[in-house]
Amino acid sequence: MASLTHLQRLEAESIQIFREAVSESEKPVMLYSVGKDSSVMLHLAMKAFYPSVPPFPLLHVDTTWKFQAMYEFRDRTAQKLGIELLVHQNPDCIQKGINPFDHGSAVHTDMWKTEGLKQALEKWGFDLAFGGARRDEEKSRAKERVFSIRSAQHRWDPKSQRPELWRLYNARKQPGESVRVFPLSNWTELDVWQYIHREQIEIVPLYFAAPRPVVERDGTLIMVDDDRMPVEPDEITMRSVRFRTLGCYPLTGAIESEADTLTGIIQEMLLTTSSERQGRVIDHDSTGSMEKKKQEGYF
């Protein structure tokens, strides 16, 4: 038999990580962000436990500011796969009406996502959470462990991270501590797209180019997904755009593109030379900002 391809090896490794994490935790959960990495992660989880259904629910830490198409996709996917979906929206944010326009991206992200995630993990008592982060996304993630220990305050302490040898993961923790597990650690963006292609994994239509109403802010194209976004008269134009990453619509830059098929997207991605996280407003603050956010508990 021919040796395994890189996608087969990555798949097998991710499945091994899933099974190990589930066996060594009391109450696991998968953080589901509805993006393409989440879709791949969920696909791998379905494979890891087949013919059983994954023995954990999905958790969406919602900000109320995601694209409508994401909410539709999320609910349909959970129903189709027969897997429990939990949604948490930070009640403090609802009460204070936290939004990216009045409070800025930093406060918005911190309150809805970072605080919201902590609340959700505590509310349901999860001791292990799967996340879709990859080591190739950003320089500070190159050293992230597959099993990453978080303190009872959900902080990431570089000194308390454990060496990971062979396929042996140490998921033991003190009461109150939790573990984040990243099954896609060794995948690159290209691997993810190739795998979506090979496995015919369904992703949110926003990844494909289509005429969409956009405005230009600070050189970034923002899609006007609902009437909560303040716009000038005649500011909105229809352009053929798609998204490389998905998040809160006011914070997610679109790129102009005609690629409306999966192969078209991959082709365009390989021929252009902008790295993926550039579309996310959060990273631009300062060098090393992701590292700081991670220490504070951002996923």
């Binding site: 040796s3 395994l4 391809t5 890189h6 996608l7 090896r9 190739q194 292609h197 090979r198 991959i266």
Partner: peptide, 9 residues
């Protein structure tokens, strides 16, 4: 893609 999906690691 066909070629790249059959790479080894």
């Amino acid at each position: 893609l066909e070629q790249h999906e059959h790479k080894s690691m």
